[in-house]
């Protein structure tokens, strides 16, 4: 409590700053969404597809953001391209192929199942199975050996009793 009291001025100063930062970041996110919504579509369904695609396609320049959340130049161009293709009547598969032909698997946050990505898809479950198998083996061996080590024959029991008696 005393420690808290000592630093309480920091709480008084920091809290409003933190709150301000939170408000700022929320309003920045709001403008980012507005940026996405600046495109015009013929119907709700097109708009929904645009949102899904720009959320699932990755910005190649900024690496860890999707197209909808990125302010990078190439992301802006790709958003425009996705919008144009949707309005021109291309299917999602065609748009994904367009992106794949130019930017490769990297463009998808959910990579497609191909020979190159098989380890990516099944690697974790493979490691889990190997680890589980090893852990099971270790556990079984440990439980077997623990049974062995606790059971003493009559001679060992007598020795133990003798040792314990000597100690006192």
């Amino acid at each position: 409590m005393r420690i808290f009291h000592k630093f309480s001025w920091e709480f008084k100063v920091c809290r409003p700053i933190a709150a301000l930062l939170l408000i700022l970041s929320v309003s920045v996110m709001a403008t980012l969404n507005a940026q996405v919504d600046a495109f015009e579509f013929e119907n709700e369904e097109q708009q929904k597809r645009f949102r899904t695609l720009s959320n699932e396609l990755r910005c190649p320049m900024c690496q860890n953001t999707n197209l909808s959340g990125s302010t990078g130049g190439v992301a802006e161009d790709l958003r425009r391209e996705v919008h144009r293709m949707i309005v021109d009547g291309f299917s999602d598969t065609e748009i994904e192929k367009f992106m794949f032909d130019r930017y490769g698997d990297f463009i998808f946050y959910r990579p497609r199942l191909r020979a190159e990505t098989i380890l990516l898809w099944f690697g974790p479950i493979m490691f889990l199975l190997i680890g589980g198998y090893l852990a099971l083996g270790i556990w079984r061996r440990a439980s077997l050996s623990s049974v062995d080590s606790t059971s003493l024959d009559s001679h060992q029991a007598a020795q133990l009793q003798k040792l314990l008696r000597n100690k006192h």
């Binding site: 990078g72 190439v74 161009d77 790709l78 130019r102 930017y103 490769g104």
Partner: peptide, 10 residues
Amino acid sequence: RFGIDLGVYG
């Protein structure tokens, strides 16, 4: 737009 066809990202 031409950059997209080339797969340019910056």
